[in-house]
């Protein structure tokens, strides 16, 4: 298999400038392989969330090329864009939950758009809620959940459709140590199952002793890239 085929994410000199001239990202070039777990770290405002938004096509770059699975996503529209998004699970920093719907309904939504069978959806929702210690919240309206619970629901929705790529923005921001461990275990399991996982975080405990690659952003620029095993480029 060629290198391109093994690469899940390819970013070449990607910049994002918001009007009038706020530079969110500048000349970011990075390749992330299929099945890799990858950390993006940096302080608030470093550009982590912007980078994830570009990867999931929620926003488009001002300059540069982004390829997912060997295909440029810059000009994707319509059903092609929809199909790509079905393969990407995103846990947003602001959760983007429907606060007037139940936990189960929120998780099911990502599977419904792919026309999964109702029985399969019900089983998958129950399994995920058990894994995230939310089994008793199945029928609770998400607006009534705590921030930490909402965060886990957002994560469950991101991975429910078994996506090939999972993008997670600050996954443990509102969680205690035990739940953080539980969440990380779930993401690791997804990664072991073959999904490419990209985690944006400023929580040192998540990446301090990791064997995965870590990229540090500072003021929208790539500051450092720690290779597997702790080597820094």
């Amino acid at each position: 298999m060629s290198k391109t085929a093994e690469t899940m994410i390819e970013m070449i000199k990607v910049s994002k400038i918001y009007p009038p001239d706020v530079v969110a990202l500048r000349d970011i070039s990075i390749s992330i392989d299929v099945g890799e777990m990858f950390f993006i770290i940096g302080m608030s405002g470093a550009g982590k969330t912007t980078l994830l938004k570009l990867l999931c096509s929620m926003d488009s770059p001002s300059k540069g090329l982004i390829e997912i699975g060997g295909k440029s996503i810059n000009q994707l529209k319509g059903s092609k864009l929809a199909r790509l998004r079905q393969k990407i699970g995103v846990a947003y920093q602001d959760f983007k939950l429907l606060t007037d719907r139940t936990t189960a309904e929120n998780i099911a939504i990502s599977m419904e758009v792919s026309y999964k069978k109702p029985q399969m959806i019900r089983n998958r929702v129950r399994t995920l809620l058990e894994q995230l210690d939310l089994a008793d919240k199945h029928d609770t309206i998400t607006g009534e959940l705590s921030r930490g619970e909402q965060q886990r629901v957002a994560l469950a929705r991101a991975i429910a459709n078994s996506p090939t790529m999972i993008l997670v923005d600050e996954p443990t921001g509102n969680l205690d140590a035990t739940t953080t461990e539980r969440v990380m275990q779930l993401l690791t399991n997804c990664n072991k199952a073959g999904a490419t996982v990209v985690i944006a975080t400023h929580d040192q405990s998540l990446y301090q002793h990791t064997s995965h690659r870590v990229m540090e952003l500072r003021k929208g620029q790539l500051h450092a890239l720690a290779e597997t095993g702790g080597k820094t480029s």
Partner: peptide, 16 residues
């Protein structure tokens, strides 16, 4: 509005 925005993000097609 919020739901439609989310549906787009999780990959709902125009027809959907």
């Amino acid at each position: 509005q919020a739901e439609l925005e989310l549906l787009k993000l999780v990959g709902a097609t125009n027809n959907y």
